[in-house]
Amino acid sequence: MRSLSAPLDTSHHVATPEGVELNLRVAGPVPRALAWLIDLAWRLAALLVLAFVASVLGEVGTAVFLLSWFALEWLVPAYFESRSRGATPGKRAMGLMVVRDDGAPCTLGPALTRNLLRFADFLPLFYFGGLTAMLCNRQFKRLGDFVAGTLVVYADPATVARQIPTMEPLRPPIALKPEEARTVLDFAERAAALGPARAEELASLVTPLLRDNTPPVQQLTQYANYLVGHAAD
C-alpha cells in the first residue's frame, strides 16, 4: 500500500512529455474475463468454419487450418492490439483497450510479447496463473502485461456530456474558492440528472449562501452561470 491516506481509485496516472497528467482507468479481471470469452467465441467460430473448409480441401486444407490456428492463437490478437484501437474484438465489445504503461498506444512488440506470454498465464490450467496475478497487483496486470509493460484500460470517456442550463447569472454572496466554484458547476451540470427532490435537498445544504425568495436549485444554477462567465448582474 503506497499510502493509506490516499483515497482508493482504479485510475492510473501517467505524466506525458507535455507535462499533463493522464488518468487511465485500469480494467479489472471481470470485464477482461468477459472480453476473453468473446474473443474465444469468435476464434472458435473461425476455427470451426476453417475446419469445415479444411475437411473439403483435404491435406492442403489441413495445412491451411493449422496455419490459421497458429495465427489465430498467437498473431491475430496481437495484430488487433497493435492497431489504432488497441483492442481485440472482445476487448472492443467490452470498451477496453491495451496501452503501454506510459499511456502510449500499444505497438506490435509489446502486443506480441503479451500474447506469447498468455501461455504462462494459462498455467496450470484455465488462466489460473493470470487470474491470481491480476488479483495481486493494483493495476490488474497479468504476467504478460508485466513483461510487455502494458495495461488494459477503459477506452470510452468517463462521463457523459451535459450542459449547464442557461439562466440569469447571479453573483454568489461570497467569493468562492476555485474548488468550491467547481462544486457549484458540477452541481449545476448534474442537477437535472438527480431529480428535483434530491437536487433540492443538496442545494439546501448551502442555505446560508442562498437568498430567500428563489428556489435553491435555481439559485445555484444561476451562480454557476455567473461562474462560467456569463455577464454579471
Partner: peptide
C-alpha cells in the same frame, strides 16, 4: 460515477 464494470473493479481494489 463510474460505468458498470469500473465499479466492480473498484470493489476488487
Amino acid at each position: 460515477s463510474r460505468q458498470g464494470w469500473e465499479a466492480v473493479d473498484l470493489g476488487f481494489r
